[in-house]
Design a protein around this nucleic acid. Structure first.
Length: 174
DNA sequence: GCCAACGTTGGC
DNA sequence: GCCAACGTTGGC
């Protein structure tokens, strides 16, 4: 499990296929519920998230997979993923109950699009990024980003200024 | 569209 | 509880 004992803001990477949610739609609507995650490791990462954490928006299953934007966790913490209870949803899980949900979801707020998308080829060729969990565990849809990796990608993307910390969010994550 | 990686399922 | 078969993800 992720160590959050120091209460610092953590960094994540979330993969998304354009068919599920495009960057244009995310930018226009300003936020999105990140649901449908059905991998235990990715689920545990969602559960570890706290309000104020930052996440890259990564576009997968396209010719040039790339990190294209920054989002911020907008939920205090993960809540039960409603799609697991919805029989009409392709994410329905008959083994999940309201009393014991199996899958979780957080809300993300769109913060900023990168001036320069950071394409996968560049990430792979960068010695500071070669150890990213995203590269090591190719199919993991929610992965951890270290502070050093975060800063490096923001630099390659053309820059990102962290928003001021929200004291309420700090207290909620303590 | 192929296929490697890897998670899940189910028979035993 | 092992492990073979199978399904899915996602880069290429």
């Amino acid at each position: 499990m992720i160590d959050r004992s120091r209460g610092e803001r953590l960094h994540w990477l979330c993969k998304c296929e354009p068919a599920d949610l495009s960057i244009d739609t995310l930018e226009r609507t300003g936020s999105t519920q990140w649901d449908g995650v059905r991998n235990p490791t990715a689920r545990n990462h969602l559960i570890s998230m706290r309000k104020g954490d930052l996440a890259f928006f990564y576009i997968s299953s396209v010719k040039q997979p790339a990190i294209v934007a920054v989002m911020q966790v907008d939920s205090d913490r993960a809540a039960a993923d409603e799609t697991q209870f919805d029989q009409a949803s392709c994410y329905f899980d008959s083994s999940a109950t309201r009393a014991q949900p199996k899958w979780f979801s957080v809300r993300f707020r769109f913060l900023q699009r990168f001036a320069k998308p950071v394409v996968r080829d560049v990430i792979k060729g960068d010695s500071a990024l070669a150890d990213m969990q995203m590269l090591r565990q190719g199919r993991l849809s929610v992965s951890v980003v270290t502070p050093e990796q975060w800063d490096r990608i923001c630099l390659l993307g053309g820059g990102f200024s962290e928003p001021e910390r929200d004291d309420d969010a700090d207290n909620a994550s303590a």
